[in-house]
């Protein structure tokens, strides 16, 4: 899906603890990591990579609030302005009876909004196929990838052998 190809130099580790040490080492050597790929969410990875905290939950809150206002506002408008009807002798604006639907739509909007945001910001979705560096990354290999034109190849080779990468490859994606 990327517009222009780039050459990637990557090393595969066999254990997540080796991976974490290697990233610390890369930070110490000021090597610019392109990305890190793992078969499962590795704890502590975002800390050593200095990844910012995800703001998805903020999106969730905003969508949820939108759902609350949509549901409550709509029911209020229908039963007080558009077509007021008395049900069971209750007031037109019978707030307790609006709570269940308001709650459900809050959850619905938050969930759909967050999931759509997630796939959008990650660039994932039906029909998307991203380049894959190595097919064992989704199995049992932990990968650190560098762009070759942004780093010195010899320094990267030295780095990988020092940090105990099992394999080192170059791939154009």
């Amino acid at each position: 899906m990327s517009q222009h190809t780039k050459e990637v130099f990557y090393g595969l580790y066999n254990d997540e603890e080796d991976l974490l040490h290697a990233i610390e080492e890369a930070n110490a050597q000021h090597l610019e990591i392109m990305d890190v790929y793992t078969p499962f969410p590795v704890h502590g990875l975002d800390k050593v990579m200095h990844l910012e905290e995800s703001r998805l939950h903020i999106a969730g809150f905003v969508f949820g609030a939108l759902g609350t206002m949509t549901a409550f506002g709509f029911m209020t408008w229908v039963f007080t302005r558009d077509w007021p009807i008395i049900f069971g002798g209750k007031p037109y604006w019978s707030v307790p009876a609006f709570i269940p639907i308001t709650f459900e739509l809050t959850v619905l909007f938050a969930a759909i909004g967050m999931v759509v945001s997630f796939y959008t910001v990650c660039g994932l979705g039906p029909g998307v196929s991203n380049p894959i560096l190595d097919e064992r990354i989704t199995d049992d290999k932990f990968c650190i990838a560098f762009e070759t034109d942004k780093a010195d190849l010899d320094a990267l080779k030295a780095f990988f052998s020092k940090t105990g990468a099992g394999e080192v490859h170059t791939k154009t994606i």
Binding site: D35, V36, P41, E53, H57, F118, C122
Partner: peptide, 15 residues
């Protein structure tokens, strides 16, 4: 959906 296992994706996925 084109999943790669990128660290940032995993972080968002967990969140």
């Amino acid at each position: 959906f084109g999943w790669t296992g990128s660290a940032k994706h995993w972080q968002r996925w967990e969140s």
